[in-house]
Design a protein around this nucleic acid. Structure first.
Length: 256
DNA sequence: ATGGTCGGCAACCGA
């Protein structure tokens, strides 16, 4: 069983990347964030040809999430179970024998902004959601764009980036609370070296070539999923140079 | 050097 996550930054612009990647890698489940398409504009017909089941929730211009699965997708809920729900930032569903939570966590803009406070609140509400609705012994995969680099190993210049909305003691401590509850960082489980990134800001000139990256996309599994996880890796290859997109695919594989 | 690049969507906002 193979799962993956990808921040598309417009699913309509990256549609060929996603179609090709599904065909080449045949994951059982793919979670996508930042689809940036209203539901009426989601490319339903094109994706129907892949044979995958899929569910999605978008809004105008920003955010938007989608889940693709080779198996039936059931028990679908959009957004948090508290207000504001933020439907276009989260999908909960059951498929392939486990619960999937796909999140696009708010980026936060600047430390002294309302948007950063919203990010912190959102994370606290999500933690409460897990505690209220699940047990650490449940089979859960929580994946997506977290907009949090967990450790100094996970940013290209920890000294310069310390205090960034995606890398500071406050957000990393919040992420740790999810780990304390029962989630395992499946990439870190299989690769303890640093300098492995999932995102390169394309506002930085030649950011990918200079490897000015961040590890902010994650696949978190509860213990039953972590035990079965045989590998977790970032799929970079030459794809990033041929078909630019600022995030790459993060993949995890599981024994049955 | 306070810019630089994308994407949505039609003037700027968000990353």
């Amino acid at each position: 069983m193979k799962t993956a996550t990808f921040n598309a930054n417009s699913i309509r612009t990256r549609i060929q990347i996603i179609i090709d990647w599904l065909a080449e890698n045949k994951p059982d489940v793919l979670c996508v964030q930042e689809t940036k398409a209203q539901d009426k504009d989601f490319p339903v017909d094109t994706f129907a040809q892949t044979g995958y089941e899929f569910v999605f929730k978008g809004q105008k211009s920003y955010n938007g999430v989608a889940v693709f699965s080779r198996e039936k997708i059931t028990a679908v809920e959009f957004g948090l179970d508290s207000e504001p729900k933020d439907e276009a930032r989260m999908i909960k569903a059951k498929t392939a024998g486990f619960t999937i939570i796909n999140t696009y966590i708010p980026q936060g803009r600047e430390i002294d902004s309302e948007q950063y406070q919203y990010k912190l609140d959102w994370l606290k509400r999500l933690l409460k959601y897990f505690k209220n609705n699940f047990k650490p012994t449940d089979k859960i995969l929580w994946m997506g764009d977290f907009n949090i680099a967990p450790d100094s190993k996970d940013v290209h210049d920890p000294a310069a980036l310390a205090g960034h909305v995606c890398f500071n003691p406050e957000v990393t401590a919040l992420l740790q609370k999810f780990i304390d509850w029962g989630f395992v960082d499946l990439f870190r489980l299989h690769d303890t070296s640093g300098g492995r990134f999932t995102f390169w800001d394309y506002r930085q000139p030649n950011g990918f070539k200079r490897n000015l990256g961040w590890r902010i996309d994650h696949i978190m599994g509860t213990e039953p999923m972590a035990k079965k996880c045989t590998n977790c890796w970032i799929d970079i290859k030459p794809r990033m140079l041929e078909k630019p997109s600022d995030h790459t695919f993060l993949v995890a594989e599981f024994r049955n």
